[in-house]
Simulated scan of single mutants.
Amino acid sequence: MNKVERFQDSEIPYELLASFGLTQEMVEDLPMKVLEQLLSGQRTPLLPISIQDSEGKAGNYLARLSLVRVEDGIDVMLMPYKESTLLEEFEEQQQSILRNGSALYSEQDALYYQLDASTHQIMSMPSHVIEHNIQVLGKSIDMVSSDVEQLMHGEILCLSKEESPITVGIDLTEDVGIRIVNGDRVAWEKEVAGEDLPLYSFGINGCWVNDGALSYVREEDYTQEMIDALEEKASQVRSNALHR
């Protein structure tokens, strides 16, 4: 499968990220799962960013981010949210498939298409890349040929691996075009949608709020609901420590 780039904590380009409105404090407070996605070269969920145009005027956006290694260091790829117009170029039945989050195979284009529900952009990947990766995956987890065929047709499969369920499906937000989740289809769909992140992820300086996209609230701006949630979390930690 494609090589996945790894980054060390010390390589995070804080100054560059700050130029997009993400301060070092905000980055360090990211939920552990999101921070791991960033360090493994994957795309993050939607994050609030600020970009200046050629006239120096700043605009606020939501975008997925990923780190990339370049000749002179590390840079950031931005995938902003925007309303999709390309969806209209597909036939009605194909639009329905895409809106449902499924992968659409086009034999004519030799591509797989999928709608990124967070950014509303149509993603694509060459079919031979997906098919190759599925074949490799099939060998690594002992899938039968019928499972491989179903995956290639865009279906989501729940398989048994060492008596535990794993769910596999095409997901073009992943570098290799395939997502594997420990759990059933519900767990797979929650991870794709980012619903596996809690509503509140408290850090040292503030809290990331998961309301479909991640937003950051500094500690001094916590609402009463957030204060109550933080106190409840602290109480659970104390209770768990006492019962060890």
Rank of each mutant, 00 (worst) to 15 (best):
82 K>C: 08
177 G>I: 01
10 S>H: 10
121 Q>W: 04
55 E>Y: 13
84 S>Y: 07
213 A>W: 06
52 Q>Y: 09
109 D>Q: 14
100 N>R: 14
113 Y>Q: 09
128 H>L: 12
211 D>Q: 15
83 E>H: 10
124 S>R: 11
215 S>E: 09
192 V>Q: 10
179 R>C: 03
87 L>P: 08
224 Q>E: 15
196 D>G: 00
27 V>E: 01
132 H>A: 05
201 S>I: 02
182 N>E: 14
93 Q>E: 15
13 P>S: 09
145 S>E: 15
47 L>S: 02
163 E>F: 06
137 L>T: 09
236 Q>N: 09
188 W>H: 12
4 V>Y: 11
178 I>F: 04
193 A>I: 01
233 K>I: 09
54 S>E: 13
17 L>R: 03
61 Y>D: 03
95 Q>N: 11
46 L>A: 09
227 I>R: 14
133 N>G: 04
204 I>P: 00
163 E>R: 08
17 L>T: 05
37 Q>Y: 10
243 H>W: 05
157 L>F: 07
98 L>Y: 03
35 L>I: 04
149 E>I: 14
99 R>M: 14
194 G>I: 10
195 E>W: 11
67 L>M: 15
3 K>R: 07
244 R>P: 00
135 Q>E: 13
228 D>T: 11
148 V>A: 02
25 E>P: 00
90 F>I: 08
244 R>C: 09
201 S>E: 06
204 I>K: 15
195 E>V: 02
205 N>S: 15
104 L>R: 05
235 S>F: 10
41 G>S: 08
165 P>H: 04
117 A>T: 10
28 E>Q: 15
182 N>V: 11
99 R>Y: 13
181 V>P: 00
117 A>M: 12
6 R>L: 14
120 H>F: 12
1 M>V: 13
197 L>R: 04
61 Y>A: 04
124 S>Y: 12
149 E>Y: 13
208 W>N: 03
161 K>C: 12
146 S>K: 09
12 I>K: 03
172 L>C: 06
161 K>Q: 15
127 S>F: 03
